[in-house]
Structure formats: structure tokens, C-alpha cells
Design a protein around this nucleic acid. Structure first.
Lengths: 194, 194
DNA sequence: ATAATAAAACCGACTTGACGGTTTGTTTTT
DNA sequence: AAAAACAAACCGTCAAGTCGGTTTTATTAT
């Protein structure tokens, strides 16, 4: 009960990784189980052995990606408190994730969830957990501000970056996004100070 | 050459409307031509008569929805200049559209375009036209500001609303979004004044 | 220790249903 | 009569899920 378990865990991990790669590359509409298996270097049978169906695979994949994101943000917040990271740097960190694989994957999944109530129900626990953890991180970021104001500034920031991430589908212009991010940094600094 | 043309034009319009309804309700992944035909109250044969294929239908549908949006925004800008609409009211107008059918449809289409270069090429002329028209509208909104600053504030606003629109997939809480919008209105007022 | 047995991991062919596009037929207008 | 507008049956493709089989690892009995 050791070699087997490790091997199993390993292929599971490979499958989840492959699923994320496929989801980001092909989009949910063209997300094919055999391609995931191929990308992971295992057979389709192995996939069905580890995950009951497509939705099951997707739910676990999104769980993984959200966890990694929260983890990275928590680290960033810690560095911020230790003085190793500025507020600007923290925003850069968030933008790094929102402009990469993470956001595109969550976007694909969100649209799927929007049209499939069952899938949405499968996902909402994860999403709630995610949001509350993010809330905590940002609240710790500005302990001198009233919690409500802290939440507002966070939600404004996150939604702005969300929107920028969405726009990046059609506009690939890092110069433009940097300018935009800088504008917001300036505003945020001012708001935090006052 | 009259009755026929009018009838043709009418079913075309019905098909485009139906396509938008289906796209918003079912999402692109579950967007089915026969459902569009059913929603429009015509046969599938009629659909193929008017549109070469799925992509063709989608391109024309998105063209329609973008035009309507720009039209509404232009009207809002006019009212703003006539003093019949405040800046807050203008933002409300934009949010009205970004939280409704328009944004979800463009989101579905954007994700499709992201993974299908041919489709993206079909669309980019429309998107460019759209962006430049929006640019103009916002620049006229703040003629006393330098154009670059005007553009920045516009892009911040639009991206914030975009992000909020995206979040509304999982969080249906108009109270929350109103608060967020109000926060931004306050910030924007301040930025425009300075 | 080793053979027998169980159990898990994995493979890949097949079924089944769905949908986009085609094609053929019918009605209506010019 | 000719062409346009529409209707509806049809077909080929494609992928998700199923399932019987195979290999590898763990457990148990002798």
C-alpha cells in the first residue's frame, strides 16, 4: 500500500495539470477528454478510472488552481507585512495571476457554470471558500482601515484586474495594461492614505 | 421585389435576435442552430438560407449588439452634455448594459475568438471600430481633460465594470454591486475635478 | 518464502446520441 | 416561368461514457 498509492497520486496530478493546460489552450468548448489523457501521457481509461466524468475532472482542476492562487496571494501579503513587498508589488503579483492561465481558466469555468446549474452547485462551495480567504488576505493588508472600506478597495481592485484580464483576450498590449495598472496604483495609494 | 425583400429582412432580424437570446441563455458551448431557428419561429432551412454557417450568424449577431451598445452610449453622452444626465447617471447607463445581455454575449464570443484564430480575424474589424467609437464618446465626455487622462479614466471605468459583470456570474447581489459602483463614482468625480 | 488470491491501476474498442451542414422538395412572389 | 424564401428529411462526424479485459501491486495462506 505504498508504491501503488504514490503512482496513483502522480497520475492524478498529471491529469489535473493536463486538464488545466487543455482548458487554457482549447477553451471549455473544445475541451476533449482524450486530449487531456494525451497531454498527461496516459490512456483515456486511466482518466475515467480517476475521475467519474468531465465535470468531476474540471471541478478538481479548478480547485487546484484556486488553491495555488490563494497560496501565492497569502505569501505576497506576508511579504508585504514584512516590508519586503510594496503595495504596488502586491498589485503586480495579483495582476501576474489575473493575466495568466489562472484567470482564463476560471473564466471558462464561470461561463460553463452560468449555464449548468448542477455544475454551478458543485462549484459554489469552492468559490465561497476562495472568496472568504481572499477577503481575509486583503483585510490583513490594511489593518488600519475600517473592514468595510478595506473590502471595497479590494473588490474594486480585483474587479478592475478581472476586467483587464478579460480585455486582454482581444488586446495584447502590455504597455497599455501597465499604464492602466499604474493609474490605479496611484489612486489606491491615495485612498489608502486618506 | 418588395414584399419579398421586406419579409426576408424581417426573418433575418428575427434570427439575429433569436441568436442573441440563445447565446445569452445557453452559452456558446450549447449554442445550437436548430434552437435558434426554433426561437425565431422559422425552420433550420431558413437559417441556412440567410447565414452561411454558425460563425457567420454569430458575427452578424455580435455586430448588432455592439452597435446597439454604442448607440445607447452616444445618446447618454449627448444627454450628459445637455445637462439632462449626471456623470453618475452615465455610469449607471454603462453598468446597465455591462450587467445585462450585452456583456455576457460579448464574453462568450470573446472566449470563442480566443481559441479560433479564423473567427477572431472575422471579428477584429468590428471590435476595433467599436473601441474607437467608445474612445470618441468618452473623450467628448471630458473635453477639459487631456485626452490621455480621459482615456485612462475611461479604460479604468470600463474594465472595472467588465470585471463586475464577470463577477456577477457567481455573485448575484445588486446591493453589493451598487456599493462598488458608488465607491467608483466618488473616486471618478474626484479624479475628474482635479 | 512462495504460491494463490484479491484488488487496484490501467487500457482501448465500442455504443450511442447529438449536431452541423447538405440536399431535395414546396410554396410564394415577380 | 424563373427565382427567391422557406421547410424538412438526411448523413457524416465526433466525442462522452461504458465495459470487458490486462497488467501490476498488495495480501493472505501454506
Amino acid at each position: 500500500m505504498k508504491w501503488q498509492q504514490r503512482k496513483s497520486w502522480e497520475t492524478r496530478r498529471k491529469l489535473l495539470n493536463a486538464a488545466l493546460i487543455c482548458l487554457e489552450r482549447d477553451g471549455f468548448h473544445s475541451f476533449r477528454l482524450d486530449r487531456v489523457a494525451g497531454e498527461a501521457g496516459v490512456s483515456k481509461g486511466a482518466l475515467t478510472h480517476h475521475f467519474a466524468n468531465k465535470d468531476d475532472l474540471l471541478v478538481h482542476a479548478i480547485e487546484k488552481v484556486l488553491d495555488e492562487f490563494v497560496e501565492a496571494l497569502a505569501c505576497g501579503a506576508d511579504e508585504f507585512h514584512d516590508g519586503h513587498l510594496t503595495l504596488d508589488g502586491f498589485l503586480d503579483l495579483v495582476w501576474h495571476y489575473m493575466s495568466g492561465q489562472l484567470y482564463m481558466v476560471t473564466l471558462e469555468i464561470a461561463l460553463k457554470a452560468r449555464h449548468e446549474p448542477d455544475f454551478k452547485n458543485l462549484l459554489t462551495p469552492q468559490v465561497r471558500r476562495f472568496h472568504s480567504r481572499i477577503d481575509d488576505i486583503w483585510e490583513r493588508l490594511f489593518p488600519h482601515l475600517p473592514p468595510e472600506r478595506s473590502r471595497h478597495l479590494m473588490n474594486l481592485s480585483m474587479n478592475l484586474l478581472r476586467g483587464m484580464g478579460t480585455q486582454s483576450v482581444f488586446r495584447e498590449d502590455s504597455q497599455y495594461f501597465n499604464e492602466l495598472l499604474n493609474s490605479w496604483k496611484a489612486i489606491l495609494r491615495q485612498e489608502v492614505a486618506s
